[in-house]
Design a protein around this nucleic acid. Structure first.
Length: 722
RNA sequence: GGGCGGUUAGCUCAGUUGGUAGAGCAACGCUUUUACACAGCGAAGGUCAGAGGUUCAAGUCCUCUACCGCCCACCA
């Protein structure tokens, strides 16, 4: 027996060498697996953003996926887990801009596009290397030979190809539409990137000719020349749609037009409002319906334009009190409600308050009907009329994709129903440049045209556009590769519920549209990992528990187990250092169980197979029965249950009962009873190691390597039950 | 405004199709018996948020209420 067993298990001394043992074995690459591994099983790793380091959420994701992968590998599947990283356009760019500003007091404009991008790429490369190290540290059995990056050559080609196809089918269009402009980050963002915050703000009742209108934003009201009311509002029945009136307004007399529109809520304020179509999406839609003029009031920096006359050039924040003062002096303020509260739109990507603007941008049309060009999607025939929206909901409704936990299916459908066109262009520099070239009135889409004089669109694509292609761009699409044929659709997508709309939905859109198949058969959603008090982990709270720190202190196995047991799919979980420490004890327990078994079985004959007596066979069978349940639990994505059962069995059945009961047997009983018992102990140990391997791969492999009878690495051992 | 969760032992959470309430951790008592004190043995701990209903039987199904949390929304 190895002397190491005489001391407590030291994860730090084992884990690194065991990971390189797996790497060297070649078995992380499915091409190298033994012949019994025929049926493919694939998971594409949700690519971490190259914005720094991995957090506990990533560690949870890696743990869950590694359990599935190791389980399937042991069950004889040709198992592929493909890793990669995401350039995360806006997040990474913002991060580098922050660093640049802090260190050198410079903005990206001081450096220029080319030089700035060099710096971002350098940062991304460093993050990437850190992340790769962290993924390995957690014991993730990914196939590094297939590693991908959303911004590498192959993925670039996939992005250009996808864009061009969608453009040709009329599903991508360029249009002047109202978008969510962030004056702070100087880019627009899509609807789902917006967060809303409750804010208390004074609500002004202003005299607008014969009407009283309500507004929380008097600084936008200069150009308001349409006054809108509900067509059925009796209070305003005497006014007719289209009627013109003269009103005294902020900067003098203007001609206002009466508009009747049922979007008006008669119960809100006075039931009358004026509209600012350039800076409010609801107003924009009213203006579109009635073909009204739209005028820009605020520029992209947040300053008032000449329409504001004396206030032109003033930032809206500074202008508001001045404008209110002017309104007051003109007697146009009827009253002010100081207790008004409404929600303000904020750019969730670390940006500022959203100031809607009408801009020429690229959109994905989710409602346009087109003929489905594929035949691989159950329930939709080739040539049938579909929309992207329909494809997205059909994939889940038809059962082709199952979401765990199921309640998220409802949430998904709800979201699809409300879905509007997806704005995919951004005014940032880091990312996939929009693959469109202009020369005069000519436009080319897809690949760079030959010849001089072509100008590429300056914008970049929403980072989720390339992530949407991830399940198949990583497998070589648009080339018709063997990998694509073998591993797509993938089996499971495991990710956080917080990116169900951002990512999962977009992957379904892209895969069904471009390939005519679902991107994955199952979606498993995990929750947020919170601190012991249930708060989000954040730098500012100082409550971050770092997965690598924990792996160093208690071992990667303990860290993994702490993220699995006691957590249900789709639910947030609470994590404390104590919990992780507890599972370190568990790793030590197995270690000592192994020591006991090895000490006693050392002299057992190695070649001959010993038949178990009836009592011992019964013990073994009841464990096999438990393992059947565990197998089903894993198949059903109930990892917490499987982990707990195995934990309980090893500790309270094998160690506390079977081993304790074996001590007198080994001392006093007849030779035949003793040899059967020894064989049982050894078999139970190997069964425990095999079944626990997906959960705590390091310590199980560390013990396995020291078993005198076992030669194959545990990572490709056969799972003990069918 | 719409939707979705949660409320079970001190803490964290399980509880599958209704059938005598479970685990881990913590706390308590005893035990250093050569696998392990990162341990063992033992005991303790719960009107399953509240009210009503269905049922022979409800933590589990239905209705309502309270509190906590999340998501969505064009509250001018």
């Amino acid at each position: 027996m190895d002397d190491k067993f005489l001391k407590p298990y030291d994860p730090k001394a084992e884990e690194e060498s065991i990971y390189s043992y797996w790497e060297k074995s070649g078995f992380l690459n499915p091409d190298n697996l033994p012949a019994r591994h025929k049926k493919p099983f694939s998971i594409i790793l949700p690519p971490p953003n190259v914005t720094g380091t991995l957090h506990m959420g990533h560690a949870a994701m890696l743990a869950i996926e590694d359990i599935l992968i190791r389980f399937k590998r042991m069950r004889g599947f040709k198992t592929l887990w493909l890793p990669g990283t995401d350039h995360a356009a806006i997040a990474t760019q913002t991060k580098v801009e922050e660093i640049l500003y802090k260190k050198e007091n410079k903005t990206r404009h001081d450096l220029g596009r080319e030089e700035f991008l060099k710096q971002v790429e350098k940062f991304a490369k460093e993050s990437h290397d850190t992340i790769v190290g962290q993924i390995k540290r957690m014991g993730s059995s990914v196939d590094w030979s297939r590693e991908a990056y959303t911004l590498d050559e192959k993925r670039n080609l996939a992005v250009r190809t996808a864009f061009a196809r969608m453009y040709e089918d009329g599903l991508i269009y360029r249009g002047a539409r109202i978008v969510n402009w962030d004056p702070k980050l100087q880019t627009n963002v899509s609807d789902i990137e917006i967060e809303r915050r409750e804010e208390k703000a004074p609500f002004y009742y202003l005299k607008y000719g014969p009407f009283t209108i309500g507004t929380a934003r008097p600084e936008t009201k200069f150009g308001d020349k349409y006054v809108v009311m509900h067509p059925k509002d009796k209070r305003y029945a005497k006014w007719n749609h289209g009627e013109k009136i003269e009103v005294e307004w902020i900067n003098g007399k203007i001609t206002a037009t009466i508009i009747k529109d049922s979007a008006i809520d008669m119960d809100f304020g006075t039931g009358v409002m004026t509209i600012t179509p350039w800076h409010d999406s609801a107003d924009f839609e009213i203006a579109e319906r009635h073909n009204l003029d739209k005028e820009q009031i605020i520029d992209l920096k947040g300053k008032l334009l000449p329409v504001a006359q004396e206030f032109a050039g003033t930032h809206i924040k500074k202008a508001r009190p001045l404008i209110v003062e002017k309104l007051r002096s003109k007697g146009l303020i009827e009253k002010i409600d100081e207790n008004y509260s409404h929600s303000v739109a904020i750019n969730s990507r670390g940006g500022g308050a959203i100031e809607p603007q009408i801009m020429l941008q690229w959109f994905v049309n989710v409602n346009k009907e087109f003929k489905f060009p594929h035949s691989g999607l159950k329930g939709i025939k080739k040539g049938a009329p579909v929309t992207l929206k329909k494809l997205m909901s059909h994939a889940v409704k038809s059962g082709a994709i199952k979401i765990v936990p199921k309640r998220f299916e409802k949430i998904y459908f709800h979201w699809i129903n409300e879905l509007r066109d997806w704005c995919i262009s951004r005014q940032i520099w880091f990312g996939h440049r929009v693959p469109v070239w202009y020369m005069g009135k000519e436009t080319k889409v897809g690949e760079k045209p030959t010849g001089d004089g072509w100008e590429q669109d300056p914008d970049t694509l929403d980072t989720w556009f390339s992530s949407g292609l991830w399940t198949f761009s990583t497998l070589g699409w648009p080339e018709k590769t063997a990998d694509l044929k073998t591993y797509h659709p993938t089996d499971v997508l495991e990710t956080g519920y917080d990116i169900l709309f951002f990512w999962v939905a977009r992957m379904i859109l892209m895969s069904t549209y471009l390939l005519g198949v679902v991107p994955f058969k199952n979606v498993y959603l995990h929750g947020l990992v919170r601190d012991a008090q249930g708060r989000k982990m954040s730098k500012s709270l100082g409550n971050i528990i770092d997965p690598v720190d924990m792996a160093e202190k208690y071992g990667a196995d303990a860290t993994r187990l702490s993220l699995i047991i006691g957590t249900a799919p789709g639910n947030d979980s609470k994590l404390s250092e104590d919990k992780i420490r507890g599972y370190k004890h568990f790793a030590n327990k197995i270690w000592n169980v192994a020591r006991f078994v090895l000490e006693n079985t050392e002299n057992m004959p190695r070649s001959k197979k010993i038949k178990l007596n009836a009592k011992d066979a019964k013990i073994k069978n009841s464990f096999l029965k438990l393992l059947k349940g565990v197998t089903k639990d894993i198949e059903d994505f109930k990892f917490y249950l499987a982990g707990e059962k195995l934990y309980h069995h090893l500790w309270h059945t094998f160690a506390d009962k079977i081993i304790e009961e074996s001590k007198p047997i080994l001392k006093e009983f007849a030779e035949s009873v003793r040899s059967s018992r020894l064989a049982l102990l050894y078999e139970m140990l190997t069964l425990d190691l095999k079944s626990l391997h997906p959960f705590i791969p390091f310590v199980t492999e560390a013990i396995w390597r020291r078993l005198p009878r076992e030669k194959t690495p545990l990572i490709i051992e056969e799972w003990p039950v069918k």
